[in-house]
């Protein structure tokens, strides 16, 4: 990550816009309380925390720069969504779909864009229209499976 992903401008810009970056070396004894607190088990271990320390999103595993940037933005959008900041969440999901429409995380952005709009407006037809578009655009995505209820 330090050698390939983090040096890329798109990644650095996404982090700087939304986050305070914190790196912890899991081999250091001083890190143990934090590793226990967050039940750390595997690296790369990426979390989005609110300022109080609550975890709002997480993932494991390496991502190349042009997958990491949209994944980070979706993570930040989800953090806003969980804090019921629906406009902020929706704007970031829309940005991901505009700038990274073929990224691995794009279907998730599509799914939760509908959720963020619905939670703000309670317009069920809007949600169903969004999810119908998700199904057409990403027919084999797990998020298409998840929108069937």
């Amino acid at each position: 990550m330090d050698a390939v992903t983090y040096p890329q401008n798109a990644v650095g810009e996404a982090i700087a816009a939304h986050c305070v970056p914190l790196q912890i070396d899991n081999s250091q004894a001083s890190a143990e309380p934090l590793l226990q607190k967050y039940r750390h088990i595997w690296t790369p271990d990426i979390r989005i925390l609110e300022a109080g320390g609550n975890e709002l999103y997480r993932w494991n595993g390496y991502l190349p720069p042009f997958e990491f940037a949209p994944q980070l933005l979706v993570a930040v959008a989800h953090a806003h969504l969980r804090l019921k900041q629906f406009d902020a969440a929706g704007e970031i999901y829309e940005d991901v779909l505009k700038r990274f429409p073929t990224s691995l995380v794009a279907p998730e952005a599509f799914y939760f864009l509908g959720v963020s709009r619905y939670r703000k407006t309670h317009e069920a037809n809007e949600l169903l229209r969004n999810w119908h578009e998700l199904e057409k655009t990403f027919p084999s995505s797990e998020w298409t499976v998840k929108q069937n209820f």
Partner: peptide, 30 residues
């Protein structure tokens, strides 16, 4: 270039002050 912090307390304090989230990256040096 990313200006990484290495102190949890400093990162959460700065996030609170700046109105941002903390991006926590736990890594292994090996």
């Amino acid at each position: 270039m990313i200006d990484w912090l290495h102190s949890y307390d400093e990162a959460t304090a700065r996030a609170r002050n700046d109105g941002k989230f903390v991006l926590l990256d736990v890594f292994s040096p090996t």
